[in-house]
Design a protein around this nucleic acid. Structure first.
Lengths: 310, 310
DNA sequence: TACTTTCACAACAATCGGTTGTGGCTCGCC
DNA sequence: GGCGAGCCACAACCGATTGTTGTGAAAGTA
């Protein structure tokens, strides 16, 4: 099926005659006639009744018309999804479960008309930044463990998310009924975070956090996935894990997991939006405004930040 | 945008390399290469990274892929909507508010996989029957005011709907609080049914009904549409109208309209399904089965039927 | 009847889209 | 490091497609 023929079909259906449709499409009436004839032959169905006063849809044409329009709509969306200068704002969130994804969803609710393309590059800061630099994505969310002056030329960052932490424990854990926990209290317990890839900015952060408060954070061990991790924690009196406050977790009620805020001080995982200064995408400015407006700053005295925060 | 190119794009994305996609599409690798190149030029975006071990999607390709699949899905549906032998069962319901439409919706719920195309031909029995004969629609619902032996050759009918009536009145009407009304009781009141086109089988039916029970049924008068009719009736102490039991009406609560069954005897508007005997569409048999199973027959003693019912 | 407007058919030219043939590149193997 | 295998791209060629112009039949209108 030829989309130009479909477009022509819709034009004729709208115009009511071949000649006007031809004018609208800047081709000759004969070309329109041919295209429709080919489409009809293709579908093995007559789409128009031709009269001396124009063409009107047959019952098959009426049936086909909404499908034809849908086809053109989908084509336009497909085109707009990638065409440079017109495509949706493409933002890398690193993982669809963590705060950036939640904030993007929030942004989408606030601006439903803005086309968004949420991707996960599965890359660390540096690779993601390279993707931004190359224009593969318009923006990415990451902790930026280097001072702004060391960033590549033309790359800009803004700290937009101060993510607090929660301890995730099962009902038999010693801290299961705590309303909040302090980092100091955690020193006595084992924190288990398998799959937190070594050498990434996340591992750096948790290393420094562990050192600062004398914590035992296990980053190694086989990674069976998130569902397995939750099941183990639900079942264990010793195991606990740390999660971002806005990280999305789902578990069965029977797990009876508790999310306990970590405070006094509250360790903060600072994430920045990273984008190219010369990116003219209008939705990018809207996203930055939105993130600014949703930013909540905790008083400095009550938080702990890694040393590399500029 | 060329759908063959889109199809090729999806094939390559699935296969992971041009050669295999070419084999799957029964064309040469060079043709695949050309199609993808044209598509990329068209979209002004690179869709694949070519390596010596195949081709994998760029980020733009990843973004485009779901749109491409959607495009092909919609194309398939558009094609299936009209292609003879594969198209959806096309049924004329005369009006989307009356019992046939309700029953078709019921059928759709019972068989969600069967593709249905519900149309309104805006034609009387004879024109609708001609449409069935010509194959424009697979079936139509109508009262058939002629004996079966007078039907065109190859046309079959089955009485599938015995529609009861309700009186529709406003709260100030004399019958507003009746639980049921008899046709005899209605003789004292004015029944208003504007828009019931003269010369159709509906008008014939209501003419005969009026004669049988001495009713005053107004079929004439300006037709301002259904909403206007309901508003007038809600407001009037005299006006009432008759409606099929399963006819769909919507009105604001403030109208406080009452639907009062007409019984003892219950006038019945008998509608048949009309189809071509040689129509092999499998969904047609399913529809007939369904209608048969839903058919409710009232005892003959309690109903009134027009004389032309065979 | 003559005129206008509709769409379809025929002939021709340009373009498109396929094939075959070939070459450059990269990877893995010896 | 050299070499073969496998991948994709480019070029030449050729038939099919798709547009154009010119023309004609049919039907409504003055």
């Amino acid at each position: 099926m030829d989309l130009d023929a479909v477009r022509t079909f819709v034009a004729v259906a709208d115009a009511g005659q071949f000649q006007d449709a031809a004018t609208a499409l800047s081709i000759t009436q004969q070309a329109v006639s041919k295209r429709i004839a080919v489409l009809e032959k293709d579908l093995q169905v007559r789409l128009f009744n031709r009269t001396a006063r124009g063409a009107h849809l047959t019952i098959d044409g009426q049936t086909f018309l909404p499908h034809a329009r849908e086809l053109l709509r989908v084509e336009a969306r497909a085109d707009a999804s990638v065409r440079p200068g017109r495509r949706a704002l493409r933002v890398d969130v690193h993982s669809r479960r963590i705060a950036p994804a939640v904030l993007l969803q929030d942004f989408h609710r606030a601006h439903p008309r803005i086309e968004l393309d949420v991707v996960t590059l599965d890359a660390d800061v540096h690779a993601a930044m390279a993707a931004v630099e190359a224009g593969a994505v318009d923006a990415t969310f990451h902790a930026v463990p280097v001072p702004a002056r060391h960033l590549p030329d033309g790359i800009r960052t803004a700290r937009v998310i101060d993510e607090h932490h929660e301890l995730l424990v099962g009902p038999r854990h010693a801290l299961a009924n705590a309303r909040v926990v302090t980092p100091g209290q955690l020193a006595a317990h084992r924190i288990w975070m398998p799959g937190m890839a070594l050498g990434t900015e996340w591992a750096d952060y948790y290393d420094e956090l562990a050192a600062a408060f004398g914590l035992t954070i296990d980053l190694v061990g086989p990674v069976f996935g998130n569902e397995a991790l939750l099941a183990e924690i639900a079942d264990s009196a010793q195991l606990a894990t740390l999660a971002g406050e806005r990280t999305r977790y789902l578990w069965p009620d029977s797990y009876d997991l508790r999310r306990i805020p970590v405070r006094h001080p509250a360790p903060i995982y600072p994430m920045s939006l990273i984008w190219r200064d010369d990116n003219p995408h209008p939705a990018l400015a809207a996203l930055r405004d939105h993130l600014d407006s949703r930013r909540v700053r905790a008083p400095d005295a009550e938080v702990w930040l890694p040393t590399w925060v500029s």
